[in-house]
Design a protein around this nucleic acid. Structure first.
Lengths: 323, 323
DNA sequence: CTGTTAGCGCGTTCAA
DNA sequence: TTGAACGCGCTAACAG
């Protein structure tokens, strides 16, 4: 049982050089004779040496750790997002520590503090709105922070995401083009959620007057659909596919034909949406791409110190049969 | 801009004691005079001091980091699981680093190596079957490892989960009790998935003879339902709610009445399953509880060195209307 | 091209 | 009850 793992000193001794030289080959410094390098590398392989993260961190004051905070994880698009982030960071040699804020800005602030305390070198947050104290803290700490799922060029930190208001306008336009006469918007709690607020504002600017707020869940969507119907709507724009799922189920329960009696449209293009009955027309958002770009940009920022420009990504209507 | 954060030395100087004393109060050692302790604590608060993780790690050779690898994240019960793990670990002062194996044992082995290299003190893996090289590596490294989502008392590492075969038997019995004459099982790829294999074996031991393998997705479930119908089944036991979701949609598409023509039952009790039409009868698994227990036990193991006993959790049929 | 040495921030004897 | 000093494993000058 190889208990204590080898240290840089063991490698140095085993290959007859100094620790400095071993450090050089580990870090790919150019000034090492090939033969020496080979000898050292052989020992590194033989002793299965891996530099201690803690020691490297202490010496360089770098942790190669990125923190990400998402509002929730279950049944959401954030799982796909985090998967993309994790892979991108791994490729760059960074680890990801995930925290969930339960859609609360106060919780988010706490999570960020935890992440910072544990040495996160960069942060990936959701949305552009945060607890005031957090924003101040972050601004003072000069930690690289990228805000995702939203695009806003006037934000305190670079944003990488979509223009949610515009996305909603596109969706409304699509529905209107399909002949909808009264479009109702179904949305989850907007209190600590500026993505939802932006989408609502976009829909309103596109003429929508009926807004129904419900729980962010399928059953919330089901309840909401009933209200939309009572309100006389002939189209339901669900600000998340999760809500659309409930709406779809509720309409079959109520015998409402989709899309004839009521068009149903979602947001996100969750995995199952192409298999629903009817197939869900939804606004497809490039979440994985966003994840990769944001993670990559954050690492660049951490390593070069150069703050990236915000990135605007576009979503498109994925026309299927529900609307 | 408070760039460099305070070190233990700053606190020592500010409170007129030695770093050793500060260290004692930080770590709650008893042998410190109250007045001294108060003075030090005041400075810690005043300077907003937080011990450097890297330094603590180096000095104690502990990282307070746990690694978890799950087969996938999207649209799965693992998101709920990880949420539970993350919260439990946070309460205990540990961080969680998540990795996704894409349901591949080879990928899993790679992810585990990454986690170990970065200093994970304990691991939470899914299932009892792993790449042989990984099992050997783990056994030799004497790192605490807990296997979840499965219960097996003969495993190399403690398992904390359910007896998947038994769960499947219970589900089959429920379906049979409801009058099903030919039950078909719908399952995803079982190659690198011993939970699925166990559930299949359980169903078989309970008399099921029809097994249909499909993609692990809603559309896979939809396709599978069609096959089950052609095979003459009057009940579909879906080994995951994701599959059941597709099955439900497909049955309404095909005009198959659920549960009259075909009973549909799932596994996991995903968030939306109570809102589906018809409401999904499913085998409810105590995932959050499992997450908390496993995470807590792992931390105990890391801290005390005492390997925990395996834990068997039970699932129950959540009878709704689809079966 | 290579070796010496001084830290990085903290825990931990060992004395006092 | 408190302090001085060493070491954890590695990087980064600085010499040579």
């Amino acid at each position: 049982m190889p208990q204590k793992s080898a240290t840089i000193r063991d490698i140095a001794a085993a290959s007859g050089v100094s620790v400095a030289t071993v450090s050089r080959v580990i870090n790919g410094a150019g000034n090492v004779r090939d033969s020496t390098r080979d000898r050292v590398m052989a020992q590194i392989a033989a002793l299965d040496f891996v530099p201690s993260r803690a020691a490297v961190s202490l010496a360089t004051s770098r942790t190669r750790t990125i923190g990400a905070v998402v509002p929730f994880l279950e049944n959401s698009i954030f799982a796909r997002y985090l998967h993309g982030v994790e892979r991108t960071l791994a490729e760059r040699g960074y680890s990801l520590v995930i925290s969930v804020s339960n859609s609360s800005l106060d919780d988010e602030a706490r999570r960020v503090r935890e992440l910072l305390n544990m040495g996160a070198e960069g942060l990936l947050l959701t949305g552009a709105t945060h607890a005031p104290a957090l924003s101040a803290h972050l601004a003072a700490s000069d930690t690289p922070v990228i805000l995702t799922s939203i695009y806003a060029d006037d934000s305190a930190f670079p944003t990488m995401g979509y223009d949610n208001a515009e996305m909603a306008r596109i969706a409304v336009a699509y529905l209107a083009d399909k002949g909808a006469r009264q479009i109702g918007v179904l949305h989850g709690p907007e209190d600590d959620n500026d993505r939802t607020r932006a989408r609502m504002a976009g829909a309103e600017s596109a003429g929508v007057r009926t807004f129904v707020r419900c729980d962010f869940s399928a059953s919330g969507g089901a309840t909401g659909l009933g209200q939309l119907q009572k309100a006389g709507c002939d189209a339901a724009l669900c600000l998340s596919d999760i809500l659309a799922l409930g709406a779809l189920f509720e309409s079959t329960r109520l015998g409402i034909r989709v899309p004839q009696d009521m068009a149903v449209m979602g947001f996100d293009n969750l995995d199952w949406s192409g298999a629903s009955q009817p197939q869900l027309t939804t606004l497809d958002l490039p979440v994985s791409l966003m994840a990769q770009r944001a993670a990559g940009a954050l690492v660049d920022w951490v390593e070069t110190g150069a703050r990236p420009a915000p990135l605007r990504l576009d979503g498109t209507v994925l026309a299927r049969t529900s609307a």
